[in-house]
Design a protein around this nucleic acid. Structure first.
Lengths: 338, 338
DNA sequence: ATTCTATTCCAAAACGTTTTGGGAGTCAAT
DNA sequence: ATTGACTCCCAAAACGTTTTGGAATAGAAT
């Protein structure tokens, strides 16, 4: 139904070649013909058929992003913000974004494989890297363009952007130690997740540097959701010697911990200190506002996307191992300023 | 580089036609040939070139979803959950999901137009309908498949799934009135948003039905973010006659309102009642847990996507005007159960 | 008159698939 | 011997674009 090059060619009485070249403004077409073709194309409401273009050009101008989701009640503020970051940048550079949702596992990997082999996307954005990450291993070995948000322990070189979570958590540990806390608990996340690993590492080192002992019994692991933060904090607070401070691996769990403490009648910021990591928008307006580590997620999405597209286009990339310095955002969950 | 039908044909000494038909299991190919072709295809690691398939089939097996985003600090739990709903259903039915992010406006509409005209997607999922919605108007007039989450006042018939927000908010109004509140404030959202319109309408009607007067000065409008909920609630609480209950148009603003109240030293659930709408995961674990209206966002995404794909395939759709009954979830922000 | 250069155009191939409309061969029934 | 049915196969067209490798014409330089 919609107009094609052939239709225009018939209309103006020229060949398909000439029409195509006229529309692209090649200089082996006379100015008059160019004007004519453009006018007619406009009148006929011509838009190129993208599939035909892609088949011919052998590229898709599309980047892939596979969200690692668990379960239906999936709602992590991290992802919507990150998505906006890559989405806006991609649009600005004329790329589309193909999004899938897959729980980590075999099916996830085969989704990558299928999309690579069938030329569905020109490159991938990887998030939530794992210590041993099969996605990265596969894409490296297939020599397919991708950029990761996060590092990994796989033995291959690839471009990434990452926050220095180790350093961030060290700052947090110092902060808590300097406030005089001795019994500090840590709600970690699965160590298989690279960012969780770094954050745990930084936290432990930070306390050690201040000479504070971190009791193994006060280290628990949550699944990053607010619900689990609530659960883990509750069990910590039920100990015979409950901690005076709880550091969570991310804001969502920290917010769950705040609820848990308040439910037991504790005043957060006075009876107990609680900290997070991420500085999601919710953190600023929780009650009390959450002390956390800021991480510019939107900008990271933006950077990752830009680096990826440069790589796809074969342009040189100045920095393809960026490590961002996170900053400590002191609000009210550790007291000191009410 | 990757194997094509031609390569396989050469390898097995048959025509391209036969190879194609063998791979699709047509019964005009001998079983032996089918087995042979399949084996060789496997060995050569054949995957069909999707662009070629799409060009030939004149469809993309892709559905489009354009997120209406405002500003970089975009983080609405609603969207990630909804996205998971449509993403998972699409994957199950063999469809891809093409996501864009665009602030509402001229550019948004031209994005729709471009994607339609260049055959980039087979259909659209529309969210956050507006009272007068140019997207819907355009897609209707272009006779392009789409399904909306939400209704509109445009004068055209189209398939949608919606929650009955009017009814939901009426329930909430009754709840607050029945608890004895007289001075009730409402944090609305821009009336141009269809769901906000229904929710405001239902709330006003609900109070009227109980004979409670809703003071115009106690109606304010927020932008759906927690930050603005905080701001609007703060100004409400600073009035000389502050309300004893605040109903927010969504959970995020309600959570902002909770913070605002707590910041002023009020005990939520005792000194003041606060309610939301949506039942996002965070609502369950806020402190105190939020009384709200439950809306099954994931399932709605799932339904919308399924209806859309049936329409694309030309299958008959039994219900293409679904109105879901929301339910009242009573937690602790209105008191009564501590 | 010939050659050269510029200008403007186009036929055909290519991208990789699916589908159409048969063709060739075999075997059994007439 | 002819017909019909059945099985297995394939050449060619089609989808709509871009690119390759010239061709045709006109004017200028030799």
């Amino acid at each position: 139904m919609p107009a094609t090059l052939k239709d225009i060619a018939k209309e103006v009485g020229k060949s398909i070649t000439t029409v195509s070249r006229a529309l692209h403004g090649y200089d082996d077409v006379s100015p008059e013909t160019i004007a004519l073709v453009r006018r007619v194309a406009d009148e006929m409401g011509y838009t190129p058929n993208i599939m035909a273009q892609r088949l011919q050009k052998q590229r898709t101008d599309t980047i892939g992003f596979i969200l690692p989701t668990f379960g239906p009640r999936f709602s992590d503020p991290f992802f919507s913000e990150f998505l906006a970051g890559i989405g806006n940048r991609a649009a600005k550079l004329g790329y589309d974004l193909l999004v899938s949702t897959r729980p980590p596992g075999e099916e996830e990997l085969s989704t990558y494989r299928r999309k690579v082999q069938s030329h569905l996307v020109d490159g991938f954005v990887i998030v939530r890297t794992r210590r041993h990450d099969p996605r990265i291993e596969y894409l490296c070995q297939a020599d397919f363009p991708f950029v990761a948000f996060g590092r990994t322990e796989n033995n291959c070189d690839f471009p990434y952007v990452d926050e220095d979570g180790e350093h961030g958590m060290r700052l947090m540990a110092h902060h808590l130690a300097d406030l005089g806390h001795k019994d500090i608990a840590f709600i970690a996340a699965p160590d298989e997740l690279m960012f969780a690993h770094y954050r745990s590492k930084g936290f432990k080192e930070g306390l050690e540097e201040r000479g504070v002992h971190l009791d193994e019994k006060l280290i628990v692991t949550g699944d990053l959701t607010q619900r689990d933060g609530f659960r883990q904090a509750t069990s910590l607070l039920e100990l015979t010697n409950p901690p005076t401070a709880i550091a969570a691996c991310n804001d969502l769990m920290a917010m769950g911990a705040i609820s848990a403490a308040q439910k037991r009648g504790l005043i957060v910021g006075k009876d107990i200190a609680i900290t997070g990591f991420d500085n999601i928008p919710l953190a600023e307006h929780s009650h009390p506002p959450l002390t956390t580590i800021h991480q510019p997620i939107y900008q990271i999405g933006d950077m990752v996307c830009e680096i990826l597209i440069r790589r796809i286009k074969g342009e040189s990339v100045e920095t393809d191992h960026a490590l961002l310095e996170p900053t400590l955002v002191i609000r009210e969950t550790c007291g000191g300023n009410q």
